[in-house]
Amino acid sequence: MDFRLELSVKPLPQRINIRHKVALVGSCFTDHMGSRLRSMKIPVLENPNGILFNPVSIQQAIQSWIEKRTYTAVDLFFANDCWTSWDFHGQFSHPNQEQCLQGINASIAQAHQFLQEADWLILTLGSAFLYELNSDALAGTAGQVAANCHKVPANHFVHRLASLQEINTALEKLITQVRIVNPDVRIIFTVSPVRHYREGLIENNRSKGTLHLAVAQMQQQFDNVFYFPAYELIIDDLRDYRFYAEDMVHPNYAATRYVWEKFSAATFDEETLSLMQPLEQLRTAMQHRPIHPDTAAHQQFLKSMLAKTQQLSARYPFLDLSEELQYFAGKNA
């Protein structure tokens, strides 16, 4: 007897190769996918503005990379003892204004270059809710969409659910702008399975539903735009709170690994799939912490792993295995 309905993910007609460059933008679920891709030695650029949730902020961020916008002091405000920007996550905030600007502008410059060379752009939409600055906001222009509220009191914002037309307009603009600087880039949309519980469960469902409708519209309107069902894999396939962290909102390790297995099977080409097991073996070996590292047995283990790493590097010279080679050789020294 079957006790669940497993979602069979349709393979993409075009596949990601390990040599491809992949840019990822969006909600915190992007972090999980980005770290997995990075572990596969795939060249990755992940959230140059930090975590972004709504499509309007994602579009505005990508536009700033394309234009290679330079942020100045007038674009920052001071709150909670740090200089920060409404367009960036708190990881870019800093007590020193100049260092805050340096971090922001360096990230934009990197994104500007990477986006022109990217083979794939993965966009994870988290929420259709917008937080717009009102006339009482600390800084900025009334009506400006805040990508991050930076723990500023709620009375500085107008909180509302964006319309389907607003999101369609933002995504149409995003795709059109990206295709001007990189006509061949392929785009994968996902909708984050993370529930925005604080919005309310009913409101969260309306938000996610609006995002799904917008993505479907983009698939109909543009070529080489795909959808990967990360949301459905968690909500409809696993469908159990044991696959969530203690907050009952974020998927746990088992859930994200399940999504990763489905993602790799549906999006990786044969060469990339063939490298998953040997690269996983190297990662596991590097994470091993022996009780007695000086024993002959452990030294032999390291020598064996060094030889395997060297063989893999010789067979696939485009792989950056410098960290692994240094680790195993250094431990043997």
Rank of each mutant, 00 (worst) to 15 (best):
D223Y: 08
D223P: 04
F226L: 07
F226V: 15
Y227H: 05
F228Y: 02
P229S: 02
P229E: 03
A230W: 02
A230M: 13
Y231M: 04
E232I: 03
E232T: 07
L233R: 07
I235C: 01
D236K: 06
D236G: 04
D237E: 06
L238H: 09
L238V: 08
R239I: 10
D240Q: 07
D240H: 13
R242Q: 12
R242T: 15
F243K: 08
F243L: 14
Y244C: 12
Y244E: 03
A245V: 07
H250T: 02
H250P: 06
P251Y: 06
Y253F: 09
A254F: 05
A255T: 05
T256E: 09
T256Q: 03
R257L: 06
V259T: 04
V259H: 04
W260Q: 04
E261K: 02
E261L: 02
E261H: 10
S264I: 04
A265K: 01
A265N: 03
A265R: 00
A266I: 12
A266N: 01
T267L: 02
T267R: 00
F268W: 08
E271P: 11
T272I: 11
T272W: 07
L273C: 12
L275R: 06
M276V: 13
M276L: 13
Q277I: 15
L279R: 06
L279I: 15
E280K: 10
Q281E: 12
Q281I: 15
L282R: 03
L282H: 13
T284Y: 01
T284E: 12
A285M: 09
M286A: 12
Q287I: 01
H288M: 13
H288L: 07
H288A: 11
R289H: 08
P290S: 00
I291K: 11
H292L: 13
H292K: 13
P293N: 10
P293H: 02
D294C: 14
D294L: 13
